[in-house]
């Protein structure tokens, strides 16, 4: 049993040295001394959930983490400190307003006796720069870099053939315009192009970065309900703020009149169900992909043998190929449905 544990920690090290550090970082954490006695299945589950969730610290390599700023908005004022201070299990940080400790992934207020004060904890709003927020910043930076480069290439020569990155990006832009925007929104498409393109490339870059297991990827940003929910709410607002009289008439005065009691609630539910479907679809697809890939890797630890590794790796490579397809597909579907919903709201007649 002891030698088995040593072997396992060796495997952990090998895996860490392999390029999988970000993916594997949760495993390293799960393999710390105090819980090495746990069932490997439980540990794999914890590790997977930790990866697809969010965290206040940024794993760089193995157990090494970088502290991230914790920003708390409390009823007594703003509070900023490093996550290093509450990283260790059970450590309490004495802030200006309250004392804080990390419980699971949540920052809780503790009272003088060291017990969690749930009532006060509810008043604390956590705006921390978490691991996912860092990856969000990185993906935005990448998008800005890429598109500034591409747009300057266009400014240099308007009538030149595209080259380099430009020739990869241009078909995507033309695709969004010709196959997503114009068929669904008609001649009014131009106003919504910036939104659609930003959504498409934002989802695409984050999906793709999610597949890359090491820096700057290895996060599960588009598989986070907060991110997909925010995008869905943006679509909800855009659709309903641009809805014309036909759109509202369709909702509030269905034909024939005696359908009013049934149709009006149904239509109102449908206003919200469309963005909710968008939110769930992207979240579930990306999270599921990450869970499957990580579960396949976890098989090595669950079986406790290296011989399963080739099988796991083969399946993970296969899954990653599918994930690349899904990354494009989900970005496309989200954009397409957004365009469709906007198109339905701005359509001139039925």
């Amino acid at each position: 049993m002891v030698s088995g544990t040593i072997l396992k920690s060796k495997i952990f090290n090998i895996l860490l040295i392999c390029a999988f550090f970000s993916l594997a970082a949760p495993f390293a954490k799960a393999a710390t001394a105090e819980d090495s006695t746990k069932d490997p299945k439980e540990r794999a589950k914890e590790a997977i959930l930790e990866h697809i969730g969010d965290s206040h610290s940024w794993p760089v390599l193995g157990k090494t983490t970088i502290g991230l700023p914790v920003i708390l908005y409390t009823d007594k004022g703003l509070e900023v400190f490093s996550s290093k201070k509450i990283e260790a299990e059970g450590s309490v940080y004495q802030g200006a307003n309250y004392s804080y400790k990390l419980e699971g992934n949540k920052i809780k207020v503790v009272d003088a006796a060291g017990k969690v004060d749930e009532v006060t904890s509810k008043k604390v709003w956590d705006f921390s720069i978490t691991r996912n927020v860092i990856s969000l910043f990185m993906s935005c930076a990448i998008l800005l870099l890429v598109f500034f480069g591409v747009s300057s290439a266009y400014r240099k020569g308007i009538n030149k053939a595209p080259k380099g990155l430009q020739s990869f990006i241009e078909p995507l832009i033309v695709f969004v315009r010709d196959d997503v925007a114009i068929p669904n929104m008609g001649y009014k498409y131009a106003r919504f192009m910036p939104l659609l393109l930003t959504i498409f490339f934002f989802i695409l870059i984050n999906n793709l970065l999610g597949i890359v297991p090491f820096f700057p990827g290895g996060y599960n940003l588009t598989g986070n309900i907060a991110v997909t929910g925010t995008l869905a709410v943006i679509i909800l607002f855009v659709v309903n703020l641009n809805g014309n009289k036909y759109y509202w008439k369709h909702i509030f005065s269905p034909n024939p009149w005696w359908l009013f009691p049934i149709m009006i609630p149904v239509e109102i539910v449908s206003i919200f169900s469309k963005p909710i479907a968008l939110m769930i679809r992207l979240f579930a697809n990306m999270t599921a992909g990450h869970i499957v890939a990580l579960s396949l890797i976890s098989l090595i630890f669950i079986f406790g043998t290296l011989w399963i590794a080739p099988v796991s790796v083969a399946f993970v490579v296969f899954m990653d190929c599918i994930e690349v397809l899904i990354a494009f597909l989900q970005a496309y579907i989200f954009t397409l449905l957004s365009a469709l919903f906007i198109g339905m709201a701005i359509m001139e007649h039925h």
Binding site: G53, D126, I129, V133, C140, T198
Partner: peptide
Amino acid sequence: DLVTPNIGLVFWTTVCFAILI
């Protein structure tokens, strides 16, 4: 935990997306 949106991430996503757009 997985399906509970975190207010911090919602906030930062909104900010980033707004800046990006």
